[in-house]
Nucleic acid binder design. Structure first.
Lengths: 233, 233
DNA sequence: CATAGAAATTAGGATAACCTAAATTCTTGT
DNA sequence: ACAAGAATTTAGGTTATCCTAATTTCTATG
């Protein structure tokens, strides 16, 4: 029963660190200094310093040279920021007509300035959506989040179909390209064929065939659709 | 033909200084160190330092011990921030149902984080209003602003009527009190009587009489309404 | 299993924005 | 016209966040 209720609000940079660490942890259990540095576009030495402070503040567990993990408190703070970010993205898209490749950068700024009241009003105004415009799940006000893991389009076997659930959100050019191909959350995609040795993948979306590279396909998360044979992967 | 287009965006604190100086200048031609310090709730010594930097950056004209004035560039920056602030206030109130005593503080944070695109979309979504919820004029995208000056309710002579055009916006408790009395922009107020020597003022708003102090009345700006005799003041 | 190269940390600095205390300049009343 | 008090500035510090360069630790390969 420690975790004295924080009085000082977290600064913008601190929120960014926690968010980055949360997402890196999901991929590999611990977040390394260099991964964090790369994601935040900051020198690794700066990350070492910040990590030490955050660990002193009880927001993360840190063993030098072995990476960091969020504590319960750090995780709550990260999810609070993630909720802000994704509610803002959804609001900008639904209520203000933003293009889906523009919402990320704007939300990146606003998430540090918006009050809880604002986030709640925004969420209410657009019907409390469960996902943001890229299909990423929005944490609840209470700090719970849908942590289901999905396969990517790169894992779908030839002849199988899948529904796009989520695409990676931070590269505007990629998002515009995906939108052109109608590869957006909710779309049904059938995998027509794949070339071996990491070659291109041919997919069909509403009767139109397109060829995409495997690294792009890896950024598109899908859920399997029913198929005569089993299993989908 | 100098004024090299600024590359670095201004920081939040710098925007706050410029906004404060703009408003102080309107009352007295120059803004003094202590006035700025008081308005920003910062030590005067800190203001001296900041003023020097802003003056080096060409945002304001500064003569030690004599106060500061905005340069053209400083004024443009101040109006840009003021537009952000007031568009946000109006949007929160109209589109998100914020109470009018809550919009100021929220806008104070968001004004430093919102992009031009966001401000423009917000303004468009609520029909490009000309004033914020407190009646303050919203600068245009091009940086022009309605600088008309108004008398306050404290200056209205007994027997005359006036329309409320604007109230001071930064004290939530005062705003709630004014709203209770229906002293809000657009309201018609008739000055029933006034006690001498800075005594209370009796006003009538939609047939209801209320007594208010002169310092509160001074925060309420009005425009005269037609009256049998002339002039209104 | 030793060591080269990668990863991480420490050391030493910079900048922005604040502070308090001390010194300076201005203003005003007699 | 001058001295007291008010206003302002200067001096010296602090904190948060970043940097580069140097050093230390880890790890994977021959």
């Amino acid at each position: 029963m420690n975790a004295a209720r924080r009085v000082e609000p977290l600064t913008g940079p601190v929120e960014d660190y926690l968010k980055a660490i949360y997402e890196l942890e999901r991929g590999s259990a611990v977040a390394n200094t260099s991964e964090i540095a790369q994601r935040l576009e900051i020198a690794p030495a700066s990350v070492s310093g910040m990590i030490k402070r955050l660990s002193d503040q009880g927001l993360l567990a840190y063993e030098p040279y072995k990476g960091v993990r969020l504590t319960g408190e750090g995780r709550r703070a990260a999810l609070r920021t993630l909720r802000r970010h994704r509610v803002i993205e959804a609001y900008l898209s639904i209520a203000l007509g933003y293009a889906w490749d523009r919402v990320h950068d704007e939300a990146e700024q606003l998430e540090h300035a918006a009050s809880d009241e604002l986030i709640d009003r925004m969420a209410l105004a657009i019907g409390e959506p469960l996902v943001d415009p890229h299909g990423a799940p929005i944490p609840s006000r209470e700090g719970t989040i849908d942590e289901r893991e999905y396969h990517s389009l790169a894992d779908v076997a030839a002849g199988y179909s899948a529904r796009v659930v989520r695409v990676s959100d931070d590269d505007p050019r990629m998002l515009r390209y995906l939108a052109e191909l109608s590869i957006i959350p909710g779309a049904e995609v059938t995998l027509v064929s794949r070339e071996p040795f990491g070659g291109p993948i041919t997919v069909s979306i509403s009767e139109v065939e397109t060829v995409i590279g495997p690294s792009l396909a890896a950024q598109v998360l899908v859920e399997p659709l029913p198929h005569a044979d089993q299993p989908a992967y």
